Simulated scan of single mutants.
Amino acid sequence: MSFDTLSAQEVIEAVARSGVQKGNMRLDKVFLSSVSAGCLLAFACGTALSTNASPWYSDNAAGLIRTISALVFPYGLCMIILTGADLFTGSFMYTTVAVLQRKLPWWKMLIHWAVTFLWNLAGSLFMVGIIFDGGFFDADPFKSAVSTFATKKQVTPDFRMIFLRGIGCNWLVCLACFFGMQGRDLASKIMGIWWPIFAFVSLGFDHVVANMTFIPLGIWVDTPGITVGLYIWKGIIPTLLGNIIGGGLFCGTYYWYMYLLDIKTLPIPGRTKSASDTEVPTPEGMSVKNGDIEANAGIPNQV
């Protein structure tokens, strides 16, 4: 069995190019792309909550029901990556690598972060206030599942615990983005995305964009003890800080240091598939083998 994949160095080169593309994207496109990402991830959050709405399993086989929920949740990130939508937390890896490689100004990185954060939130709140208001979470056991989940996320843990969970979460999420870029066929991309996301959900880590659905939905169904102020203090701030460290430092900076630190230019990633492949011009004025076009076509369309 053979696998058509990029090497780790080729992937981080593609990450840097994608970071440059993201940081220079028109703000109206970033807005639309970010709203889309917030909505798509909210679908997966809703599925995870409905899977958890199993009182007997929650009381008697909590590990099993969490594993099942973790197995279905990754379809959200698959939809985001494969459609090229902009997820706030993925940008921590992409734009950080572009800045470290001196291909993107730091202030453009921060603007991209701010815009994707605000409009991921808008997409998530749209789903909570409009789509999920269709009645699905208004009655038990689904309403109770929302309240229980939100309480475990916000009320029970302290600030430090949520911060540490945020580090682990986006370390894995950015690895999923990395693996999704590493595969050059659809099946490889989906498999690469699936397992790191399964890991973060099964371990109960905290993702700031997922919390944009989980916690506001808990507020929507009147979960006791959860307020907007508490959500900002424990659902956004520690998770956001942890996600930045997990994605920007543990993933983006690490792979940049390992593979790009001493490289001044970014060659187009992709390998020659056969000796007979012909060269074709690229937008940058460089040349690439015909067999490599498949590998390069989706590079800008990553989370």
Rank of each mutant, 00 (worst) to 15 (best):
V303E: 15
L241E: 06
M1E: 13
C174D: 05
V11R: 04
N52I: 14
C169K: 04
M161V: 14
P157Q: 01
S188Q: 10
K22N: 07
I219V: 14
G180V: 09
V221E: 12
L110K: 08
G247H: 07
L217C: 13
L110N: 06
F149N: 08
Q182W: 05
F159H: 10
P267L: 13
P238I: 06
G129P: 05
L241N: 05
P269G: 11
N60M: 07
A139E: 14
S91F: 05
W107P: 00
D86T: 07
L118K: 12
L230V: 10
W56R: 08
F73H: 02
G63Q: 11
M212V: 05
G46F: 11
L27N: 03
N290I: 02
D185M: 06
F200W: 00
L64Q: 03
A37V: 06
S50P: 00
G291W: 08
A44N: 09
A145L: 01
G123D: 05
V208C: 05
S287K: 13
R160D: 08
A275S: 10
G204M: 03
D222F: 05
F31L: 14
V303K: 14
S2L: 13
G242N: 04
G235M: 01
L6E: 09
G218N: 07
Y259N: 08
S50K: 15
A176E: 00
Y254S: 13
S147F: 00
V146E: 05
S7V: 10
S36V: 05
A85N: 05
G252E: 12
P141I: 02
W194L: 08
I68H: 04
L100H: 07
V280Q: 02
N243A: 06
T96F: 09
L6P: 09
R184P: 04
K143V: 00
Y75Q: 05
I245N: 01
R165C: 02
K29D: 03
L240A: 12
D133T: 00
G90Y: 07
L40D: 06
A210L: 04
W119V: 15
V115M: 10
F137Y: 08
L260G: 02
D185P: 07
P157R: 00
M79T: 08
N301I: 15
T148L: 02
G23Q: 09
T51S: 13
M258S: 14
D133L: 09
